[in-house]
Amino acid sequence: MSIDEGTAARVAKLARIKVEEADLPALAQEFNTILGFIEQLNEVDVEGVEPMTSVTPMRLKRREDVVTDGDQQAAVLKNAPDAREGFFAVPKVVE
């Protein structure tokens, strides 16, 4: 698989990261290098091996259905560039 400049631009856009036009070739090249590393894994024969989802033999930790958190409006809004009347205020987004 090879990443061209168009794909690099699209990935950047989906990730909401601004990349200057001039920087796209280098970015695409970087992606290809990373994919190249990963492709080395294809050399391993995994025929009949269950896909591994975790390296630790652990059971997913569960919580009980009890309210133990919240009620901290000020702390939640503390880092917001703009907050009004208890809401985050953001530039208008309308469908």
């Binding site: 009347e85 809401f87 208008k92």
Partner: peptide
């Protein structure tokens, strides 16, 4: 709630 901003809850 505001002409220029959206409010998020």
């Amino acid at each position: 709630m505001d002409p220029h901003m959206s409010f998020i809850d």
